[in-house]
Design a protein around this nucleic acid. Structure first.
Lengths: 226, 226
DNA sequence: CGGGCAATTGAAGCTCGTCAACCTTAGTGG
DNA sequence: CCACTAAGGTTGACGAGCTTCAATTGCCCG
């Protein structure tokens, strides 16, 4: 891991991210004042469950996976964060201890924000507090969505749901590229890689073709009915 | 559903709840200024997924279940809120739309707080904003915990984990009473009632006895190893 | 004592995880 | 240009774990 200062490109990514987007410029630059940038290789562990954690992270490039470990060493993914996502914010309110592990899935650049300072800024600036609440809310929703899908849907249905989530409304014919390896998608959906493979096979009958990372939907209706 | 004003007992429950506990008195009474109380029978639906929702709820007595519906009518529990818990707060930040259904599991009294007003108060009062962030964080964690347990643990392990969560540290012999029907516990753990039953059977061999709603642990170590 | 509901138990079926083998692709070096 | 390798992905076979349905037991409150 190397640490750097913030360059202008990084700054653009930060300001364009979901969290900073709606903040007034003054608030943003107050936060960005002492941001540090770090780079990580694929498979690098960013922090581990239970460790002290006094920073909040924003993905400048690459991909980060949040997961927990079972007693037997098995891993369960909680979330996957692409470029522009802020994560690690919950430690801020839970005694500065990480509640999960974080790992870089690809070569990744992170912006690191001091959480104590951010919290102080949130006290002084209602807009920042509001942005934080929206972020927490979004993350809570993501987890609840996952939980509900895990409990209500079968593997092919979860995959169908993921595909539909990437397909604009009112279009029957559509194609898009997975933003990561199938491996990662499987983890995100709570499936073994083999199960994901079989799910794709099952969806072929409903007009889904998969070539490498490219997914084509030929009949949106059929997917929705699945 | 009947609606009432706030009496002194309700007020005590509110002020003693996790959310209000740490708030300065001025902030609390500002919020409680226009609180309304409503009563509900067992099985009453409090609100439904997708409905407009401009209130936040606090359980004064009884029990509330948050759940989502699958296409086939099956239900997946997201959370169960006992007395003193605040819920429905996420709608505040997501366009005032409920993202799940809520149902009274028992005869229940709710305090209803206008969410627009609460949000305004949060802007003006950093302590309220902070309490909200902690609440959101706790709820996010609860969902993540559930998700991780669902994915990492078998049914008996999840039940063991639930029992251990109700058993103070450093004690080998312990007994407590379930705060709700086994039915509800099954839902909370993402199990069919039959599966919960079988899980209890399996745990008998590890020193857990169940009589009605009373659970006895005779060997904490054995449970932890499970 | 009996009705009704929760809880338990049994049997059957389905979904998914696991293990192993195989295929495909890309990258490497002769 | 082609053989070789390595890693991701796919397929098959099998078993574990949970759901479902059905029947039974246990329990509370009339």
């Amino acid at each position: 891991m190397k640490t750097l200062r913030l360059n202008s490109n990084d700054r653009a990514v930060l300001l364009g991210s979901c969290f900073f987007e709606k903040l007034p410029a003054a608030a943003s630059s107050a936060i960005l004042d002492d941001v540090v940038v770090s780079t990580h290789e694929e498979h690098d562990i960013l922090f581990g469950q239970g460790e002290a954690l006094d920073q909040v992270f924003l993905v400048l490039s690459g991909l980060v996976r949040l997961y927990r470990l079972g007693k037997d060493g098995r891993e369960a993914d909680i979330a996957v964060f692409p470029k522009g996502e802020l994560f690690g914010e919950s430690a801020m309110f839970l005694g500065n201890r990480a509640t999960a592990n974080a790992q870089a899935i690809e070569t990744t650049m992170l912006a690191r924000i001091d959480s104590r300072r951010l919290r102080k800024l949130a006290e002084q600036t209602p807009e920042i507090a509001d942005a934080l609440m929206q972020l927490l809310c979004r993350h809570a929703q993501m987890a609840e969505d996952c939980l509900a899908e895990d409990r209500l849907l079968t593997a092919p249905q979860r995959v169908a749901s993921y595909i539909l989530g990437n397909c604009p409304d009112g279009i029957t014919n559509f194609s898009f590229r997975l933003p990561f390896q199938k491996n990662v998608l499987a983890g995100k959906l709570g499936l073994a890689p083999e199960a994901l493979s079989r799910a794709f096979s099952a969806l072929r009958r409903s007009g889904v073709t998969v070539k490498g990372r490219v997914i084509e939907i030929h009949d949106r209706q059929a997917l929705e009915r699945f």
